[in-house]
């Protein structure tokens, strides 16, 4: 899961960057933090389902692969 670590690192750093950019536009720190997360506050149910599906899908895939591999060996 090194791949996951890299992605999370990139994501966190770039969220930091977008925070800095918000500050540079002239927003206050608090509002820029809110601005980072508020798009996720108003989500419809289908949207949430798609969200979780997209985020969880690789784990499911990885898991199935692992099971198959162990079966193939056994």
């Amino acid at each position: 899961m090194d791949v996951l670590g890299i992605s999370v690192l990139i994501l966190l750093l770039l969220i930091g960057l977008s925070l800095v950019l918000d500050l540079m536009v002239g927003l206050h720190f608090r509002t820029s933090v809110i601005h980072v997360f508020n798009p996720f506050l108003v989500m419809e149910v289908p949207e949430l389902i798609i969200f979780f599906f997209l985020m969880i899908a690789p784990f499911v895939y990885w898991f199935i692969k692992k099971i198959r591999k162990s079966r193939g060996q056994g």
């Binding site: 791949v3 992605s7 990139i10 994501l11 770039l14 977008s18 980072v36 997209l54 690789p58």
Partner: peptide, 13 residues
């Protein structure tokens, strides 16, 4: 895939 998801999340954030 993971970097694609990062791009997706970031495009929203």
């Amino acid at each position: 895939y993971p970097i694609g998801m990062v791009i997706l999340l970031l495009s929203i954030v």
